[in-house]
Design a protein around this nucleic acid. Structure first.
Lengths: 220, 220
DNA sequence: TAATAATACTTTGTATACAATATAAAAACT
DNA sequence: AGTTTTTATATTGTATACAAAGTATTATTA
């Protein structure tokens, strides 16, 4: 790697640097589903030996971003329609829980953060910067999840979202009217503000499902 | 490792053999929470080099069974009360989903399997063989989860249960009346058989929560 | 020419060697 | 004696070397 993109990475073991780097490349489409990850090529490109590359791959494997074929190495995970359905259903289940818990625990300042996050999201939608949009959308959802206060649920949701991020990203590229997402977010904010957890739960389900359907359609 | 406990392991990469072996030892308490996993000692004990040991540890790390301290190696994960709560809450959320889906999808033969599984569980309870009890309890729940038909949810539940298995195991040791679990299972079977998914969901919540409370009490 | 066998090459899987850091022990000092 | 400094030891992190299996290429045969 030679130099470090982020200061903080300078203290991480190389396996974690490799993990973060490859995760980034998989999520944002530089490495494409099905593509083979060859250890020597990666170690040369990243400027480290095979050992941290291999350990980084083990982490990606457990994260669900790569699949191993015995004696044939690591491949960027691709996804079947069934797997996509399963992941989205799991995500919906956990995020429904999170919204519900969020309604019960939200504070005034957290609520302001949530509104602010959606303002930012609305801004990035205007810029048409896909990467920024994806990031600020994630930020919005993360505030809800953080407020729910369950670290394990958060961890699982991060992992689940990563597994379909690649496809969501592609889908957003071709989205006709991204401002609809902003409006949906606003409705969710409103329901949370009014302590209408049943309403908020229903909205987040629809929010996720509508994306699910679009991604699903695109996959075929 | 020299010889193989299971035939099937003979074709697995050593990292996976190491992973399975250490997971087993962590789950059933041979390796205790907080205990340090030293690579050289492990590689000598398991009869392999450090390389597969390290890769196996990476897998355990992502599975949540070990935690890494930088430059201080791997330690068997111990759990705080908060983490336990979080895991149990996540489990309850996903298993609730699973029971609901199970009610919608169950077939006659699957229902018979479920009843049979609880008969087996009742038998093992009589033997007082703790290991067998834990295994057949898992078997019962797995039929419900399999019937739900969501592979990702299953995968997450396996991981979540592993993270608290050690404590559940300890708790079962001191359980006054394990036949209560059999009766709870029977009620769940009945509700599923009657297609009363709301009832089944409520029962599984109670089933998990009652264990949660007991484990929680034991942790302190 | 098509199919098969033999060979060379690549790549993964595993083991070992080296480097850097942390822990433990011993020595020096106040 | 207790504290700090120095030294030695042990352990993790990283790199390289070797072995085994897979892939591709060439040669051989029908």
């Amino acid at each position: 790697m030679g130099f470090y993109e982020n200061e903080e990475d300078a203290f991480l073991p190389l396996r974690d640097v490799v993990f973060k780097q490859l995760r980034e490349e998989i999520l944002y489409g530089k490495l494409k589903p099905g593509e083979r990850l060859m250890e020597i090529a990666l170690s040369e490109r990243l400027g480290v030996s095979r050992t941290p590359v291999r350990e980084g791959i083990r982490l990606l494997e457990k994260e669900g971003l790569v699949v191993m074929l015995p004696r044939r190495g690591a491949h960027v995970a691709s996804i079947t329609a069934k797997q996509l359905e399963d992941v989205l259903e799991a995500r919906r289940t956990l995020e429904t829980f999170a919204v519900n818990a969020c309604c019960a625990k939200i504070t005034k300042t957290r609520f302001e953060e949530l509104k602010e996050a959606n303002r930012k999201f609305a801004e990035t939608v205007e810029t048409h910067d896909l990467r920024a949009m994806a990031d600020s959308d994630t930020e919005f959802h993360n505030i809800i999840i953080d407020t729910a206060g369950n670290e394990k649920v958060k961890e699982l949701l991060v992992s689940l979202k990563e597994q379909i991020f690649r496809y969501k990203y592609e889908f957003m590229k071709e989205m006709e009217d991204p401002t609809r997402l902003v409006r949906e977010h606003n409705e969710i904010v409103k329901a949370i503000g009014d302590c209408r957890s049943d309403k908020a739960v229903e909205l987040i389900r629809m929010h996720i499902d509508s994306q699910a359907i679009a991604i699903y359609r695109k996959l075929k």
